[in-house]
């Protein structure tokens, strides 16, 4: 690693941050789905917000190495914020409501990040899980505001930017979700290829060493945790706006666990993993749950167990040979750079 001179390293990093042809293809295809699958808008919308949600987890798990059992906390905050804003007519315009919901989640993320940064992996697991549970309990307790178990009903979402009305088939909803996903993806891409993002990878690979070369470890982690909370909040808000409902299960543990599966299917640490994982997960869910709707969770569990037993690395390299090729086109090798140290 030290053998590479600074400038060459810098050039390499800049080259890695460039948009690759395959990425263009990916997004062109994503845009083309609007025309290609006109009768599948509902599931495509779900893929879009789930992809954004998984992207958010990838930011902290794949790039910063924080294992979270309660990422649904921020999803839920976003979902309820958007729902309440729309229901009480505080902010009618969806895009603005989306930003506000995202910031609400970011504030909670920032405040709780101090707890999450304390202690070891174990305490982290417990704290993230507990935060989601506390929020769920709160939402249940203040049922006069949140509607409790029945969920928040009677949400009507105003036209996007005052121009595009949500239609019955979900076309506008899908285009809206996809656009938000794309914009936030571009932003995330900027973040992870920035010096800030590189320092995160250094922390993930070796926190002690990162601290020794002068990276303020905790501050960086708090920042990325807050940003990820913002992303999750926006994903939650998209969920509420596209489905016009927010219920207690937005905070559920299952949601956080499913999210991990989504990310693991797609692969961590190259941003596209969450999006690809979301598409595969939703397709699987649709297929399997039409066979056994009640016991769908069993198959989720089995997939998780099998993935881990076979080895995530081995699966990534063997079974998903083609996706890995694609991933390489998308610029994954920078993550595999020796150590991934910050310049």
């Amino acid at each position: 690693m030290t053998a590479i001179p600074h400038e060459a390293m810098g050039r390499q990093l800049v080259a890695a941050a460039r948009w690759r042809p395959a990425e263009w293809v990916f997004w062109l295809f994503a845009a083309a789905t609007v025309l290609l699958f006109p009768d599948r808008y509902l599931i495509l919308t779900e893929v879009a917000w789930l992809g954004l949600f998984a992207l958010s987890l990838d930011l902290i798990l794949g790039y910063a190495g924080i294992v979270s059992l309660g990422h649904a906390a921020f999803f839920g905050i976003g979902a309820y914020s958007a729902g309440l804003l729309a229901k009480h007519g505080l902010i009618n315009e969806p895009v603005l409501a989306l930003v506000v919901a995202g910031f609400a989640a970011a504030v909670v993320g920032f405040l709780t990040s101090f707890l999450v940064m304390r202690g070891s992996d174990l305490t982290r697991l417990m704290v993230t899980l507990a935060i989601a549970l506390v929020l769920r309990e709160l939402a249940n307790r203040f049922s006069d505001i949140t509607g409790g178990f029945d969920g928040l009903q009677g949400i009507t979402v105003a036209p996007v930017l005052g121009l595009f009305e949500f239609d019955l088939f979900g076309k506008v909803g899908y285009i809206y979700c996809l656009s938000v996903l794309f914009l936030l993806f571009v932003l995330a891409r900027r973040i992870v290829h920035s010096p800030f993002g590189l320092s995160l990878r250094a922390i993930r690979n070796n926190p002690l060493r990162a601290a020794a070369i002068g990276i303020p470890v905790n501050r960086r982690l708090i920042w990325i945790y807050t940003v990820a909370a913002f992303y999750a909040g926006v994903a939650g808000a998209l969920f509420t706006q596209s489905s016009a409902i927010a219920s207690l299960d937005v905070f559920a543990f299952d949601r956080s666990a499913d999210l991990m599966l989504v990310l693991v299917i797609g692969g961590t640490g190259y941003l596209y993993g969450g999006l690809i994982g979301a598409a595969i997960f939703k397709l699987l869910q649709q297929e399997v749950s039409s066979l056994t709707p009640q016991y769908w969770q069993f198959w989720i569990g089995l997939v998780l167990v099998v993935i881990v037993l076979l080895g995530r690395q081995r699966i990534e390299s063997a079974v998903t040979f083609v996706p890995r090729r694609i991933a390489r086109l998308f610029g994954k090798e920078i993550a595999a750079l020796p150590g991934g140290e910050a310049p």
Partner: peptide
């Protein structure tokens, strides 16, 4: 010997399987 993430994913998988199997 595996990472905590692997252990978490694996045991969550087991939890889901045990929950639904018991339900069944």
């Amino acid at each position: 010997g595996r990472s905590h993430l692997d252990q978490v994913l694996f045991t969550i998988g087991l939890v889901f399987m045990s929950v639904t199997a018991t339900d069944y």
